[in-house]
Simulated assay, not measured.
Amino acid sequence: MRESLERRSFLLTLVLVSIAFAWVLIPFWGAIFWACVVAVIFYPLQQKLKNKFGDKPNRAALVTLLIALVIVVIPALGISYSFVQEGVSFYQRLDEGKINPGKRFDDIQNAFPVINDLLAQFDIKASDVREKISSGAATASKFLAEEALAFGQNTFSFLLSLGLMIYLTFFLLRDGQYLIDLMVRALPLGDDRERKLFSKFAGVTRATVKGNIVVAIVQGALGGIILALLGIPGALLWGVVMAFLSLIPAVGAAFVWAPVAIYLYATGSWIQATILVAYGTIVIGLADNVLRPVLVGRDTKLPDYLVLFSTIGGMSLFGITGFVLGPLIAALFLVFWNIFMTEF
């Protein structure tokens, strides 16, 4: 009786201490999560370097970390900074009246009279649409400006999180296998199940990040290049927006370049518009169809509808981190239920 009471008391205390420890780490969960993501992605490279360097795990982990910084972290910081700067510039031009979204809508409306008939069928006033477009553009640009200001004010917090992420990534790369074996021993889910779950976590994380981020970067870069060549203002801003929208299934970069092409047709720039439509359909569109199957393995690919809902839901709950965390939770959900149906 006493031994049973002691066991239950210890387990209760263990749960409480674990919850308290997790609560302490809440301010840094973003840094911890992205450290795990980077470590998972570059772990195969670290293993190859470890075999090359022999009995020098610190050197292998350090070289892998430096490669990750050059390939992922530094470019992401540069793109983010440029995006914020472009967003602030766009807000200033909009505030000064140099950009008038309402007038752009009027130009499209005049060039395509069928729009008036279409709006009339749904009992929608063109003036209301014009006002919504103007207010939406103002709200979006103001949001970018406020985020830029907040970023400047929270620079120390951001640098601290970045430093912690880099610091933790090194140890996850160096001691990753040991930590996995330790968790397999500690967790009471069954060793085979736990290894299956960890394998699924690694596979989905690599597939999601490589598939989504690489495709998004390629599509955003291709879109930004063609917009710049065609002389569209804010090409860098719209390129990053296209990259961001490419992370969301069923949306994609066409959400940006298609309206731009329509406006070019409306203003009489037929050659530019045709080039943009052909380029967007063939080059930008095929980038997803060609790269994603190569980067995302079949074993880790989720149904498209599940990816859509989990990505949007994850981003609404966790912000930009949700585009990885949402599909990851969905994949683990499927794995748990698969294990349940198979074994129970």
Rank of each mutant, 00 (worst) to 15 (best):
M1I: 02
E6F: 11
S9V: 15
L12D: 05
T13G: 08
L14D: 01
V15Q: 00
A22G: 09
W23K: 04
F33L: 11
F33M: 08
C36T: 03
Y43G: 01
K52E: 03
F53H: 04
V63Q: 01
A68G: 15
V70E: 08
V72G: 13
V72Y: 09
V72D: 04
K98D: 11
I99F: 06
G102R: 01
G102D: 00
K103V: 13
R104G: 12
D106M: 15
N116G: 07
A120N: 03
R130D: 02
S134C: 09
A145G: 11
E146C: 13
A150G: 10
T155M: 14
S157F: 06
L164W: 04
L173W: 10
Y178W: 12
L179K: 05
L182Q: 08
V184N: 05
A186C: 05
L189C: 10
G190M: 00
F198K: 00
A202G: 00
V204C: 08
A207E: 00
T208Q: 09
I213Q: 07
V215N: 01
Q219D: 08
A221C: 09
I226A: 08
A228H: 13
P233Q: 04
G234V: 01
L236W: 12
L245I: 06
L247G: 15
G252K: 01
V260G: 04
A261I: 07
G268W: 12
Q272Y: 14
T274N: 06
I275T: 13
G280T: 10
G285R: 00
N289K: 10
V294A: 15
V296S: 07
T300C: 12
V307I: 10
G314T: 07
L328G: 01
L328Q: 03
F333W: 04
L334D: 05
W337D: 08
T342Q: 07
